[in-house]
Amino acid sequence: MADEINSQAQDIAMAIIANSGDGRSKAFEALTKAQNGDFEEAKKLIKESSDAIGQAHDVQTQMLVDEANGKKTEFSILTIHAQDHFMTSLLANDLIKQMIKMQEEINELKGEK
């Protein structure tokens, strides 16, 4: 039983890490596209980033709901690491969205589109 609980906790943590990592990578790809003036692709990538981070958020939310309903999740350094990945990816996504807008404004001011 303990191995089953531990395995479930690892699966949850890995789902958060994988989705968060994908989201963070897509966000930085979007920033590079924006810096190169490809705003259409940047917006597509930032949407993909938001979607991946949203999937990580869904897993995290389920953990919170489970705990609120009395089902305890076994925490480990892997779970903490997963939460760290999620929060940094969420922050990167939010900041890069603003950076893309700023880059669009810079390009517009410079007469570039």
Rank of each mutant, 00 (worst) to 15 (best):
M1H: 08
M1A: 15
A2Y: 10
A2V: 15
D3F: 13
D3L: 12
D3H: 14
E4G: 06
E4V: 13
I5M: 12
N6R: 13
Q8S: 10
Q8E: 15
Q8M: 14
Q8W: 09
Q10I: 12
Q10S: 10
D11M: 09
D11H: 08
I12W: 03
I12N: 05
I12A: 04
I12P: 01
M14E: 04
M14R: 01
A15P: 00
A15G: 01
I16Q: 02
I17T: 00
I17K: 01
I17C: 01
A18W: 01
A18T: 15
A18Y: 13
A18V: 15
N19W: 03
N19K: 09
G21F: 02
G21S: 07
D22N: 15
D22S: 15
D22M: 13
D22A: 13
R24F: 06
R24M: 04
S25F: 05
F28Q: 01
E29G: 08
L31C: 08
L31V: 04
L31N: 03
T32Y: 08
T32V: 10
T32N: 15
A34C: 07
A34N: 00
A34F: 00
Q35C: 06
N36T: 12
N36G: 14
N36I: 11
D38G: 12
F39G: 03
F39C: 05
E40G: 14
E40T: 08
E41M: 11
A42H: 02
A42L: 03
K43R: 15
K43N: 06
I46A: 05
S49C: 04
S50T: 09
S50D: 07
D51M: 12
D51I: 08
A52P: 04
A56K: 00
A56P: 02
H57R: 05
H57T: 05
V59Q: 01
Q60H: 14
Q60A: 09
Q60M: 15
T61R: 03
T61M: 02
L64R: 03
L64T: 10
V65N: 09
D66L: 12
D66H: 03
D66C: 07
D66V: 08
E67Q: 12
E67D: 01
N69V: 10
N69E: 05
G70S: 11
K71E: 14
E74L: 15
F75T: 08
F75G: 08
S76T: 14
I77D: 05
L78K: 00
L78S: 02
L78R: 00
L78D: 02
I80V: 13
H81C: 03
A82N: 01
H85I: 11
T88Q: 15
S89W: 05
L90M: 08
L91G: 11
N93S: 08
N93T: 07
D94W: 07
L95H: 09
L95K: 03
L95G: 06
I96W: 04
I96N: 02
Q98M: 14
M99L: 15
I100S: 03
I100G: 04
K101E: 11
K101G: 10
K101W: 12
M102R: 03
M102E: 08
Q103H: 10
I106S: 10
I106Q: 14
N107Y: 10
N107C: 11
N107H: 06
L109I: 09
L109Q: 11
G111V: 13
G111P: 02
E112Y: 06
E112M: 14
E112D: 09
